[in-house]
Simulated scan of single mutants.
Amino acid sequence: MTNKISVCDLVMVDLLGKLTWKITQKRGNISLMIYIFAWLIILVPQYAFSQGVIVNLLQPENPVAGTSLVIRAPVRSLQDITGAVLFYRDPSTIEYRETEMALDGNTLSLVGTIPASSVVQPYVEVYIQVSLRNGSTQTYPLADPANNPFRIIVTGGSNQDSVLILSPSPGQRISPEELMISVSLVYAPPIVDRSKTEIFLDNEDVTTKSVVSGDIVIYSPQEVPTFLKRGVHEARVVLFDNKGKAVSEKSWGFFVVSPEEQMASSTTLTYHGIGKIELRNESISGVSTWYNRGDINLEGSYGILTASSLVHLSSEEKSYRQPQDRFGVTIGIPWIKLNLGDSYPFFNSLVMNGQRVRGISGRISAGFLTIDAAYGQTIRGINGT
């Protein structure tokens, strides 16, 4: 039995074929539109997010190992920023340390300082986290900042920076009995041969009476002539490479005084202070906003006792936000330090690492034993509305 296809059947097949093709074509257009729409959903927010509040991070000029490093990050506006934290680490550590950044209205930027102890060769890695008024946070760099930080190349500095003075300090007043000349070569470049280091006292070569131990060079106290005259004296250290060529030199002066004069100078009260006021107005879309800030810093010493205080007041301090004002008093002697108010203690990063604490903190250093402690509040409780 044969199947017969009539003209009508062919017409129907043709119509069905065209209809099927049109439906398929329409579905293809719908699929294409859905595909494009999906990519827009993915890309547009990413593009919008890429326009972060931080414009960029300025590369510091000539970062030198062993000196504090100021980090500046220009921002689009300070109006939406409630706080910022600078995270940093050197090549010897995996974990980041953190420190608060100040909001500088004069330069419209965030400013933070990395302590000298963390500025080492060959680089320091940093990233920034910003807290916004709407409760969200942004980072710079934007994508996975902890694993993709901003890297700052650190140099060993000039020749003068290759020698770190340990004692006596430049300009120090010291008795002959307490005089010990010592330096550290920890920041000296690799080409320096430590064993060839020469040390001079008032242009007299005392190298043979000194001791070199690793990166430390010491002119031992028992070798210092007790008949040094009162007045100004000079110490000088010269570094050489392995071929005997001088590559670096550093000299500094100090005062030799009698024990009575040293005691009198050590019990002299010294103090100084600095104050700053900032008045700034921002006008955005016809809305005018004033930002007022003030800072007072006082420091003083009397004998072995040192004290300092900090007061920072801001018009942005509100009861429904985290604290913007800062205040603190630090009192210390060589082996004990006590902080009252706002402080930034450093512990293991799993506990606390440079986070602000409002309360009390301190340190006791007794030779091989060091005890750090802190008690207070890191985040203020805020009632919801």
Rank of each mutant, 00 (worst) to 15 (best):
R326P: 04
V329H: 05
R321Y: 06
T306A: 11
G362H: 14
L298P: 06
R321K: 11
G303V: 07
Q355E: 13
G332V: 02
W335Y: 08
M352P: 03
I336D: 03
S315D: 07
I331M: 12
H312I: 07
P345N: 11
K318M: 06
Y344V: 09
D295F: 10
S349M: 02
S309G: 15
L350N: 14
S314V: 06
D295P: 00
L340K: 04
G359I: 04
D295K: 14
Y320A: 10
S349W: 07
T306R: 15
M352H: 09
I331F: 04
V311T: 07
G294R: 08
W335K: 07
T306H: 11
I333P: 08
N353V: 09
L350T: 14
L298N: 09
Q322C: 01
E316H: 12
S314I: 04
V311D: 05
S319C: 03
E317M: 02
F327D: 10
V357E: 06
V351D: 13
N297D: 13
R356N: 00
N339T: 01
G303P: 09
G341F: 00
G362C: 11
V351P: 05
T330Y: 10
N353P: 02
G303E: 12
M352I: 12
Q322A: 03
I333V: 15
D325F: 03
R358H: 08
V357L: 05
K337D: 15
R363F: 01
G300Q: 05
E317T: 02
L310M: 08
L338K: 02
Q355A: 01
D342Q: 09
Y320D: 15
S309Y: 06
Y302W: 15
E316V: 12
I304E: 13
R321W: 06
N339R: 02
I296S: 06
L338H: 01
